[in-house]
Amino acid sequence: MNECCKDCVDLHACQVGTSGVISCVLRTEENLATVRRLAELGVRRGIVLTAVQKTPGGGRVIAIGDSRLALDKGTLQNLHIRTTAEAPSTPTAAAS
């Protein structure tokens, strides 16, 4: 069970091909700049994303709409999603 909710999983634990909706972004004093930058890039609660590729060191490339972002393992562990099968209908990056 994750700290933010019982029915979500951190993005690092997801397999390539998993799609979901970001349910929360864990914030700590140490990662506030990263969380702010992710929000500037469109990575925030309610956005639909897909894990499309693994990277060396445990990272992933994620897809949000037509955009691709490479995220490191630590960042992925702070992004919690509900997989698409469980997720309610939410806006995509293009609609925000």
Rank of each mutant, 00 (worst) to 15 (best):
M1D: 14
M1Y: 15
C4V: 09
C5R: 13
K6C: 12
K6Q: 13
C8F: 03
V9G: 00
D10Y: 11
L11Y: 04
L11S: 03
L11K: 00
H12V: 14
H12S: 14
A13L: 02
C14L: 00
C14I: 00
V16K: 03
G17S: 08
T18D: 06
T18W: 05
T18Q: 10
S19I: 00
S19E: 01
G20L: 04
G20H: 03
G20P: 01
V21K: 02
V21L: 06
I22G: 01
I22V: 09
S23T: 02
S23E: 01
C24V: 13
C24A: 15
C24M: 14
V25T: 00
V25E: 02
L26Y: 10
R27Y: 10
T28I: 14
T28Y: 15
E29S: 15
E30G: 13
E30R: 15
E30S: 14
N31V: 13
N31G: 12
L32E: 09
L32G: 04
T34W: 05
T34R: 08
T34M: 11
V35L: 08
V35K: 08
V35S: 11
V35D: 11
R36H: 11
R36V: 09
R37M: 08
L38T: 03
L38Y: 03
A39N: 10
A39D: 08
E40D: 10
E40V: 11
E40H: 08
L41C: 04
L41Q: 08
G42K: 00
V43P: 02
V43M: 02
V43L: 07
V43D: 01
R45S: 11
G46E: 03
G46I: 00
G46Q: 04
G46K: 02
I47R: 11
I47K: 10
V48K: 01
L49D: 04
V52D: 05
V52Y: 04
Q53A: 06
Q53F: 03
K54Q: 09
K54M: 06
K54D: 09
T55F: 05
T55Y: 07
P56M: 05
P56V: 07
P56A: 10
P56N: 07
G57T: 13
G58W: 02
G58R: 03
G59C: 13
G59V: 10
A63N: 07
I64C: 07
I64T: 10
D66P: 12
D66N: 15
S67G: 10
S67K: 13
L69W: 04
A70I: 05
A70G: 07
L71I: 12
L71F: 14
L71Q: 12
D72E: 10
D72L: 03
D72H: 07
D72V: 06
D72Q: 08
K73A: 08
K73L: 02
G74S: 12
G74Q: 06
T75Q: 03
Q77A: 14
Q77T: 13
N78H: 05
L79T: 03
L79A: 07
H80D: 07
R82N: 00
R82L: 02
R82D: 00
T83V: 07
E86A: 04
A87M: 05
A87W: 01
A87G: 06
P88G: 00
P88I: 00
P88M: 01
P88N: 01
P88H: 01
T90P: 03
A93F: 15
A93V: 15
A95L: 12
A95F: 11
S96N: 12
S96G: 11
S96E: 12
